[in-house]
Design a protein around this nucleic acid. Structure first.
Lengths: 204, 204
DNA sequence: TGTACATCAGTGAACGCGCGTTCACTGATGTAC
DNA sequence: TGTACATCAGTGAACGCGCGTTCACTGATGTAC
């Protein structure tokens, strides 16, 4: 982050970092190109050396977010091996942990209104994240008798939806509050869901 | 919506309706006071006869949304009586139906960034909606042996989270797509969850 | 090692725009007599 | 029924602002000789 005179050194990443901070503080609405430039110690015009414009900058922030997100979930999945159940649960926890730890990225990815199909790179990163969760679901799915087994993509969509819902409704300061910690809410929710699939013992 | 000369007649509601349309079309970011005024056939300054400003207008749209939302879910709940299960499932379906049918309201309520605690009226409307879902969950909860029964508020938070997640991730055109219809996704998800609570037969 | 030069990342001034908000006003509406 | 008048919903002009974006430029950096 040290400036070295006329040339910045790594302005591109500095702008992304500034954008992430601003998005985290003020939401996607509050974020402005000019303010990000200012925070990076640079004229707004300089941004155009590195990005096509405002949207492009947000899209890149989102892309980096999806990469980290996929890495984090992949790592959690690997750590849970060889137990399909442990891998799956770790992946779910990683989801919430990511949203907690990197709110600027999370907002860019899911609340900024930019489409995941904006660029091939962004779409690829998003698909990689989705694939990790689907893999974890498919592994676990094998423990269910085939005739009662829902498609793994549906299974993972349920988990993604519940995770996202918990983040949006209960893990942001503004909005509905609940007497339960988001982490507990998600863990118990997933637990009950897995029991419904016959993957956990019905007894407490 | 007929203008009658100098005096509008019902400008307040016309502005709210215009805001809802704009929010639906352009998201909470794209919505501007001036454009809402224009669409209602009125000078931007006229808005200040009825609202304190931009935020106040969105808040009122959200409040009306929560009222409708609560009514709709209450109605679904009543129709499902006396079966606790039928009432609960109808309430869940009403959630998604509302999001589908009234996207402008839904966005104002959950994606506009305005806090539910902005005004007492808004908070009251939101709480009424929450109470309906909690009541449905509490009714259903009575069919679970007390020692395995999660708190009804947790139960309803899980369902709300999954419903909201399905709406945000799969029921908006932009974003991740899934091979499943949102309605099916939510219905199967809730089904599996309820089975996990022992409220549905474990057999298919 | 020193000089000439090409590259290109950043400057700074300027733009047009639409925003939210204010203000003194105007004229339609409704009521009292 | 007709007139005088109070009310107040809407006008229209104006404001200051910060935005995203463009442009010709400048000067630091790195390289070829």
């Amino acid at each position: 982050m040290t400036k070295r005179g006329y040339h910045h050194g790594n302005l591109r990443q500095a702008l992304i970092d500034a954008a992430l901070t601003l998005i985290e503080e003020k939401g996607p609405t509050g974020f402005t190109l000019s303010e990000a430039a200012k925070q990076a110690g640079v004229t707004p015009a300089a941004v155009y050396r590195h990005f096509e414009g405002r949207e492009d900058l947000i899209a890149e922030a989102a892309r980096q977010g999806f990469e980290m997100f996929a890495d984090l979930m992949q790592h959690a999945y690997d750590k849970g091996q060889p137990s399909a159940l442990a891998a799956f649960e770790a992946t779910g926890r990683a989801y919430l942990a990511f949203a907690r730890k990197h709110p600027g990225h999370y907002i860019s990815m899911f609340e900024s209104g930019i489409s995941v199909n904006r660029t091939p790179e962004l779409a690829a990163a998003a698909n990689r994240a989705k694939a990790v969760l689907e893999k974890a679901a498919a592994d676990l799915s094998k423990h269910i008798p085939p005739e009662k087994r829902p498609p793994a993509t549906m299974f993972s969509a349920h988990i993604w939806a519940m995770s996202h819902g918990v983040v949006e409704l209960y893990a942001r300061n503004a909005g509905t509050t609940s007497p339960f910690a988001p982490e507990d809410l998600l863990e118990t929710g997933i637990g009950i869901y897995l029991r419904g699939l016959g993957l956990l013992e019905p007894d407490q």
